[in-house]
């Protein structure tokens, strides 16, 4: 068997503009022209109102953690190269939630030992170039200045 690799996204008609945005350093979300709702992941129509009048906009790339877990072992060895990592759900400033992982966080062997990681913590996007031309959004903690 060949060496394990990370799973890269294969864009579809609905999602290609999102992945193009990642390569351009933009975290794009869909905005419904009919009801104003922001949507992620990208789809063919606005899920709440059913309108197909969707526009792309550049999101701020900022959000807060809705939940998190330290993954002690990923689905293959390619994910474990840097040891355990932090899986997160990020609630974007625009409203929708997406799954990602954190960069730049030290994880210890003790349960829940991930420095600075908590529900509600502010994060910002950190794009990462992977194999096969894929650029994937990861996130980093935004350190609040000391009060």
């Amino acid at each position: 068997m060949s060496a394990p690799r990370r799973h890269v996204p294969v864009p579809t008609a609905e999602t290609a503009p999102f992945w193009e945005g990642c390569r351009a350093g933009e975290l794009r979300v869909q905005r419904c022209r009919a009801c104003g709702a922001a949507q992620f992941y990208p789809r063919a129509l606005c899920a709440p109102c059913g309108s197909r009048e969707l526009a792309w906009e550049r999101g701020t790339g900022r959000g807060t953690l809705r939940s998190w877990s330290i993954v002690r072992r990923g689905v293959n060895a390619a994910y474990d190269a840097d040891g355990p990592y932090v899986l997160v759900l990020v609630e974007l400033e625009e409203g929708p939630t997406l799954m990602s992982t954190l960069v730049g966080v030290r994880v210890g062997p003790a349960l829940d030992a991930a420095e600075g990681v908590a529900i509600g913590a502010p994060v910002e996007v950190a794009f990462e170039a992977w194999q096969e031309g894929a650029t994937v959004p990861r996130f980093r903690l935004v350190r609040r200045p000391e009060a």
């Binding site: 799973h7 890269v8 996204p9 294969v10 864009p11 579809t12 992941y41 990923g74 799954m99």
Partner: peptide
């Protein structure tokens, strides 16, 4: 497990 484009790339079981 997970959405093929928006969750699986993160390698979480």
């Amino acid at each position: 497990t997970g959405h093929p484009q928006f969750e699986r790339p993160y390698g979480a079981p």
